[in-house]
Amino acid sequence: MHSLFRPCIDLHNGQVKQIVGGTLHDTNASTLQTNFVSDQPASHYAQLYRQHGLQGGHVIMLGPGNVAAASEALAAWPGALQVGGGITLENAHEWIDRGASKVIVTSWLFPKGRFSEERLRQLASKVGRERLVVDLSCRRVGDGWVVAMDRWQTLTDMRVDAAALLRLAAFCSEFLVHAADVEGLCGGIDVELVRCLGEWSPVPVTYAGGAASIGDLGLVSRVSQARVDLTIGSALDIFGGDKIRFDQCVAWNKTGRLD
Rank of each mutant, 00 (worst) to 15 (best):
G79L: 04
G84H: 04
G84C: 08
G85I: 08
G85C: 11
G85M: 08
G85L: 08
G85D: 02
I87E: 05
I87L: 04
T88P: 01
L89A: 12
E90A: 15
W95I: 01
W95A: 06
W95L: 12
I96A: 06
R98P: 11
G99N: 11
A100N: 03
S101I: 05
K102C: 04
V103N: 03
I104N: 12
T106Y: 06
W108K: 05
L109G: 00
F110H: 03
F110Q: 00
K112W: 15
G113T: 03
G113S: 03
R114T: 14
F115K: 06
F115T: 04
S116N: 10
S116E: 11
E117D: 10
E117K: 11
E117C: 04
E118C: 10
R119W: 13
R119H: 12
R119I: 14
R119G: 01
R121M: 07
Q122N: 13
A124S: 14
K126P: 07
V127K: 00
G128N: 00
G128A: 03
R129Q: 04
R129I: 06
R129H: 00
R129S: 00
R129D: 00
E130P: 04
E130S: 10
R131T: 00
L132D: 07
L132M: 12
L132C: 11
V134Q: 01
V134R: 03
D135P: 07
L136S: 05
L136W: 04
S137K: 06
C138G: 07
C138H: 06
D143H: 14
G144F: 09
W145A: 01
V146L: 14
V147N: 04
M149C: 13
M149H: 13
M149Q: 14
D150C: 10
D150L: 14
R151F: 12
R151M: 09
Q153M: 12
L155H: 09
L155G: 00
T156C: 05
T156W: 11
V160R: 06
D161G: 03
A163K: 15
A164G: 12
R167L: 15
L168I: 15
L168G: 03
A169S: 15
F171W: 15
F171H: 14
S173M: 05
S173F: 01
E174M: 09
F175P: 01
L176C: 10
V177I: 06
H178R: 10
A180M: 05
A180T: 03
D181H: 09
D181N: 08
V182T: 10
E183W: 06
C186Q: 13
G187P: 13
G187L: 12
G188M: 02
G188Y: 07
I189P: 05
D190L: 04
V194P: 13
L197D: 01
G198V: 02
E199Q: 14
E199L: 14
W200M: 08
W200D: 02
W200I: 09
P202V: 06
P202H: 03
V203M: 02
V203T: 01
P204F: 07
V205T: 07
Y207D: 00
G209S: 09
A211V: 07
A212G: 11
D216E: 10
D216M: 08
G218Q: 06
G218V: 02
G218L: 04
